[in-house]
Design a protein around this nucleic acid. Structure first.
Length: 403
RNA sequence: GGGAGUGUCGCAUAGUGGCUAUUGCAGCAGACUGUAAAUCUGUCACCUCACGGUAUCGCUGGUUCGAGUCCAGCCACUCCCA
């Protein structure tokens, strides 16, 4: 194996365990003339992939390009437990249909980054469902509480006197068991998966196998610039989002996050990154760099033309101050229920934005979030005549025009 | 099994039986900006066009003119001792 390949494969990886493990595995594969089995697990609960996942997936793609075998383990069994994050207590069991459906949408999103048809897909309920009680006890006997307590999450909760349920302790063990079952050579994940992945090493070893190498990618921060990107915190950019949303969300990240996004979320070459970072340090307006970044991100998941369009849309919609130049979502006059063609601004906004209650809308109006034909309306009871080409802005993002 | 505690908004925190349940963070909206940060303002249980109405301090009852607060039972969690 050439050193350049190894160099590429090690790029950006935050943790490799053991340190020289990757080289050894690659060498071993070469000697035995076989592909390495690269494991990636996922729980088919709410399969909305975002840029944080993409960091791991791009690395996976590099392995695939180098000729190795990717195995996706769908946690159809473990999803019923839920990876203990401390937030979700116990999860509802998923129906087989739901698992199937989630797995499909997941794989569909995966295909944006890796070649799914060349990957192996397995469901861990295939082997976990059939374990007998004594087999489970056997498995559990290979792990001690002290080992489990090394996991940060457990440790903290234990010390803070917050409850840890037994089944949560079992989760990492089952994940490790998966690695043994599929004979994984390498397991990939974010750094938050480090512990679970090491469990795989331990179990493989105790079953007399050569333990897997653990590769952890850094965690991308979310749009708030504080927490890691995650769906539950609603600070994510989804892989399937529309170009305009992707662009806008990228523009909303704090400036301090630009270097991290350049490094982890963009696909710029090393030289380009260096150049952009220099610009940033030399006082270039961060906004311009974010635009470059945003275009790059959109391009990865859509295409160049979409990226340019998204930029133009953004500049016009949110940066240009001229109200009339904006893009308004057309709403048919007929769709608005009114009395004699007149309607209170409150009722109108309520009908336009059906996700909010009237009370919530009234608060929006009173705080000055609603413009009608570029005039701020603060009185929620103001009656207006419905007529074509009336333009209404609600909040930061919603623009409507009556047709 | 025995004993001692705790439970208030997404999180964290105040709350001598008495008026509208406090404050911070996060969120939402506005101002200023570059849908950045910082700052300031408003909002932050639900509903009503509105005067206003209906809720709510783990749950169910009780005492009381009046209960987040007192009492009883239950539930959940924690700690200590078996």
């Amino acid at each position: 194996m050439e050193t350049t390949t190894i160099h590429v494969l090690k790029q950006k990886v935050e943790i490799i365990l053991p340190v020289n493990g990757l080289e050894e595995k690659l060498l071993q594969a070469q000697k035995e003339n076989r592909k390495l089995i690269i494991k990636l697990g996922f729980d088919p609960t709410a399969p909305d992939l975002h840029l944080g996942h993409a960091v791991v997936l791009k690395k996976l793609k590099q392995f695939q390009d180098a000729g190795h075998q990717i195995t996706i383990v769908v946690g159809s069994f473990t999803a019923r437990i839920g990876d203990p994050t401390g937030k979700n207590k116990s999860r509802q069991p998923l129906s087989t249909e739901a698992v199937q459906h989630n797995a499909e949408t997941y794989l569909n999103q995966l295909s944006k980054l890796i070649n799914v048809s060349k990957a192996t897909i397995v469901f861990n309920s295939d082997w976990l469902d059939g374990l007998s009680t004594s087999e489970i006890i056997q498995l559990l006997s290979r792990v001690t509480i002290a080992q489990l307590m090394h996991r940060n999450d457990f440790n903290q909760r234990f010390n803070n006197n917050t409850p840890i349920a037994m089944h949560e302790l079992v989760y990492p063990i089952l994940q490790g068991f998966d690695s043994m079952k599929i004979r994984a050579d390498i397991e990939m994940g974010g750094t938050d998966q480090l512990f679970n992945c090491t469990m795989g090493r331990q179990l493989q070893e105790s079953f007399g196998m050569n333990p897997q190498v653990v590769l952890c990618m850094p965690l991308l921060k979310g749009l708030d610039g504080k927490e890691k990107m995650s769906k539950s915190l609603n600070n994510f950019i989804g892989l399937t989002e529309e170009p305009n949303d992707m662009f806008g969300k990228t523009m909303s990240i704090p400036d301090s996050l630009i270097p991290e996004f350049l490094e982890l979320a963009s696909d710029f070459s090393a030289e380009e990154k260096l150049h952009l970072n220099e610009l940033l340090n030399n006082g270039e307006n961060p906004m311009n760099l974010k635009k470059i970044l945003a275009k790059n991100i959109v391009k990865q998941f859509h295409h160049e033309a979409a990226a340019l369009k998204a930029e133009a849309f953004f500049s016009n919609q949110f940066q240009n101050k001229t109200f009339d130049k904006k893009v308004f979502e057309p709403v048919s006059l007929n769709a608005i229920k009114s009395v004699n063609g007149s309607i209170s601004i409150l009722e109108l906004c309520f009908q336009l934005k059906n996700s909010l209650s009237k009370s919530a809308i009234r608060k929006l109006i009173e705080s000055g979030a609603v413009l009608v034909n570029n005039k701020k309306i603060v009185d929620s009871q103001l009656m207006i005549k419905l007529k074509k080409e009336t333009r209404i802005k609600v909040g930061k993002r919603d623009f409507f025009e009556l047709k």
